[in-house]
């Protein structure tokens, strides 16, 4: 099993109707279904987001996801449990994670 020792920087875009500028954060736990996102940008439960990131040389762009849970931690960071919405994205990520873990 192989592992990098950094968290994953992600670009966060919000629903167009929210008129919010794009933000950024880090995914600290990642699976093909979703993960834990930490960011300074306020996120509320059920909020719909689009994430873009690069993992192991592959680009993932505008991945639709929903914040299943979200809360502000003691430091003031927003911690959100996110779930990826698109089955095609999930399958692509699953394949990549298998590749990473089996290296």
């Amino acid at each position: 099993m192989s592992s990098t020792c950094v968290t994953l920087p992600v670009l966060i875009e919000f629903e167009p109707g929210q008129f919010r500028r794009e933000a950024w954060g880090r995914v600290e736990r990642l699976s093909h279904r979703g993960g834990t996102l930490a960011t300074l940008a306020p996120i509320v439960p059920d909020e719909r987001l689009r994430l873009s990131f690069q993992l192991w040389g592959q680009s993932f762009r505008d991945i639709p996801c929903v914040a299943v849970e979200a809360e502000k931690d003691a430091d003031g960071y927003f911690q959100a449990e996110i779930a990826f919405q698109d089955e095609a994205d999930r399958r692509r990520l699953a394949k990549l994670l298998w590749d990473i873990l089996s290296r």
Binding site: S3, T4, V6, E28, L30, S31, L40, G76, R91, L97
Partner: peptide, 27 residues
Amino acid sequence: QTAIKAAVSRAIRFEGTSLSIAPPPHE
């Protein structure tokens, strides 16, 4: 101030972290 405080406060406790990857089940 909120962002500065949050970032500095969290960074001070930083001791190294890793991206945790959960293996997907075989589908």
